[in-house]
Design a protein around this nucleic acid. Structure first.
Lengths: 344, 344
DNA sequence: CAGGGATATACAACCGGTTTGATACAGGAA
DNA sequence: TTCCTGTATCAAACCGGTTGTATATCCCTG
């Protein structure tokens, strides 16, 4: 820095007044003469003065930075949520520091350490697939770090959270398949460790039960969100003595994998077997057949997560609800779950 | 903060020594007795002491935070690059602060302001579609803010940059189409403001020229990266008295849009018209037909951008090259550009 | 005209580290 | 013994703001 940045001291010196008066003038303190205020603000503008957030942060222990930890940014799923967070945060004068856990428990713990070491004002977390313990989260609670869990939350822990209506969405999707005439409905579920997966499984079984359909454990496969998972699970399902007539996949990628497996056997979607996904990723609308899926409000989820966090930060002593905030999703019905032709 | 965080002062008091000795002991200064060092490090570990980066930053004017500005995170295109950046940055002890310009010039300027106000140690920027001026970038150069442009760069400006071999990739793709027997090749280009678009157009025309094919301005449409852009451009192309027999799109989304337009006219890809994309997004492999595209090393691009930035930051006076660092892409040949059937 | 209360400003301490200069006490050379 | 060098430590200043307290001036009231 050849030409050193303008500080409050420079302004004070030029005007022949003290640092404190300059500081008060800039913050519009009542005990400063109108005339002085004008002179200070004018000079500050002329010199392009900006208060140093680092110095300010040292004093009032605020960095105006919020930490965000997501498993992976390269899925629109999470990057959309992050976009929503950024919108609300920047409106409130906060910056966001985003880290990826890459689905690793160790990395998750590591980034939590760096973020807290960097004195972020709060933390937003969506846990990794590997995360099965909550000790690191309880540690944050103990240290009174403002915290919000989102989407991939952990159960039974006193932390505010924002989630999707996973159970309900899966219920509605299963119900939709039943209404379309399908009776032997399989579910390619996500990793068993995630609450999200369990909730979707719950919605699936609830719907089957409501309509008096048998719950066949062979038709429920815990696998994962990726294409390969869908492909492998579908292959297993198609190899059953009594294969399903519909597959509800836990994600659009898994659905895509399932469709690939189905078609490579010379079967067709939805004529031979219906398939549905989850997430409403762009390509679901233009693959053939277009895939029925669930539109999840990830952008709103991100916005709401930041709001909950800011609420904790500002009125730090106000009681915050640990009841998960649930956002509504909506079914997007497309060709891949077309009504089953009567085949008696 | 009920139980205030452990500071260097606490350690000094407990051991009955001065702050400065503690500081030196922790930084392994030679003029500190081995015995003292051991006592200090032991107590620091016991108290779970971590130096406050804010205080440290105030003093040495380093925040160990790098600012990254991308147009949009919800495309794998950029979020992959960001993942690469994070890998290298965190290895070097830096954090990343990511902001989105949302393709708006004003937002881009605004986030640059907040990031520099927050004293980031350096900045990585991929410009928005709207950005046609470079005054804000020259301002950063004037202020000596370490800066690297990536992917969406601006020409003729003394700043290190990392880019893809856009011209070459487009050349190879056009050449591939020509080799497959196509002769009337259209190009749905990106926004005319972006150098990326111009370079791909250049590769396209160079290839046509090399093979002695006419360059028909009707076949070149500047449009955009999105599905809608591809759809609209393709509709215009198909409405020509002499429609093209192949379309090279500037992105996979545009290619998807083009395919939709083609098929809605009852034509087929590649039998009636070939289509290629750019980016190698996941879905290009499983749509029907699978789309020929270009695999871009976005992850490596991000890694390299951080490396260039860190090099500027560390040896700040070493001359840095303003010659763009060019990374190689590779063609992914698929069904959508199958060899043209001879139709004499 | 003394005393009380605004008003306007200056001084100094502080946040949590790092760094400079001073000090104290070794041991070795002159 | 004196001087010098090296070792080990401490006090104080500093980074750039904020804030509590002291000080000075002015106006008003009794």
């Amino acid at each position: 820095m050849a030409h050193h940045t303008v500080t409050i001291k420079d302004i004070a010196k030029k005007l022949g007044i003290s640092k404190s008066t300059v500081s008060r003038a800039l913050r519009d303190h009542p005990n400063v003469k109108e005339e002085t205020k004008k002179a200070v603000t004018a000079l500050a503008a002329a010199l392009d003065y900006h208060p140093d957030p680092v110095a300010r942060g040292l004093l009032n222990k605020k960095t105006y930075i919020l930490g965000v930890i997501v498993p992976n940014l390269s899925f629109p799923y999470f990057s959309l949520a992050v976009s929503g967070m950024q919108e609300i945060a920047s409106k409130a004068g906060y910056q966001i520091m985003i880290c990826q856990s890459n689905e690793s428990y160790e990395t998750e713990k590591a980034v939590i350490r760096t973020l807290t070491a960097n004195r972020v004002d709060g933390l937003i977390l969506s846990i990794s697939i590997e995360t099965r313990e909550d000790a690191h989260i309880r540690e944050l609670i103990r240290k009174k770090v403002p915290l919000v869990l989102f989407d991939r939350v952990i159960g039974d822990i006193p932390v505010p959270s924002v989630v999707m209506d996973n159970t309900d969405a899966a219920f509605r999707m299963t119900e939709h398949l039943i209404e379309q005439g399908y009776r032997r409905i399989a579910h390619i579920a996500g990793p068993e460790s995630l609450l999200v997966s369990k909730q979707r499984v719950k919605g699936y079984t609830l719907a089957l039960r409501k309509y008096g359909l048998p719950i066949d454990p062979e038709l429920l496969i815990y696998k994962g969100f990726r294409i390969e998972s869908g492909k492998e699970a579908a292959e297993a399902l198609l190899g059953l003595p009594q294969p399903p007539d519909a597959i509800m996949a836990v994600s659009d990628s898994a659905a895509a994998g399932a469709i690939m497996a189905i078609e490579s056997r010379g079967m067709r979607v939805p004529d031979d077997i219906a398939v549905s996904g989850f997430n409403n990723e762009v390509y679901t609308s233009f693959v053939k057949p277009p895939v029925t899926t669930v539109s999840l409000p990830m952008y709103d989820l991100g916005k709401e997560a930041i709001r909950l966090l800011l609420r904790q930060i500002s009125h730090s002593e106000e009681p915050v609800s640990f009841e998960p905030r649930v956002l509504k999703s909506s079914l997007v019905i497309r060709e891949s779950t077309r009504r089953k032709a009567d085949t008696q």
